[in-house]
């Protein structure tokens, strides 16, 4: 499988484990066993599962298995693939840092981290759709 697919799938597996780790922290707090302000990690928990794990796994498999764009360029643009990989993961990590910091400090710069994360995730989604659209071919 292509290097980008291997990266997407392995990174997705890491997010799967990280999401469940966040789930343990959140459940531990609910049970009164963990005394940390972790409530603000709930959105990251959901997004690590829905975006970091499931969506990223899908993206990796789509890039690998969908019909070829052309014989010369079977996966259309490797560049757009790298843009998707980097912006998606940077966006998720910025969110993991920015959201709890903003919730606990209310600092403006932490809010801007969240805005940057939002922009990166939107770029990731757009780059993936642009690269994939032409490979959805009827036969």
């Amino acid at each position: 499988m292509p290097i980008l697919t291997r990266l997407w799938i392995k990174t997705a597996l890491v997010y799967f484990v990280l999401a469940l780790l966040l789930g343990i922290l959140l459940a531990g707090q609910c049970a009164g066993l963990i005394h940390l302000p972790v409530q603000s990690l709930f959105p990251s928990y959901i997004h690590f599962l829905a975006v970091g794990w499931i969506s990223q796994l899908i993206i990796g498999v789509v890039f690998w298995m969908f019909p070829k764009y052309t014989q010369a360029n079977p996966r259309r643009s490797e560049g757009l693939g790298w843009v998707t990989y980097i912006t998606l993961n940077l966006g998720l990590l910025l969110r993991l840092v920015g959201e709890p910091l903003h919730a606990t400090t209310n600092a403006a710069w932490a809010g801007w981290l969240m805005a940057a994360s939002a922009l990166l995730l939107l770029i990731a989604g757009t780059a993936f759709v642009i690269n994939t659209w032409g490979r959805v071919k009827e036969k």
């Binding site: 903003h102 403006a108 995730l121 939107l122 759709v129």
Partner: peptide
């Protein structure tokens, strides 16, 4: 599904950015 991905990510970006700024 690709169109919904774009719409869902756009709304999500608006929500997240608005939550920060």
């Amino acid at each position: 599904s690709l169109i919904y991905l774009l719409m869902g990510f756009t709304l999500g970006a608006l929500l997240l950015a608005n939550n920060g700024v």
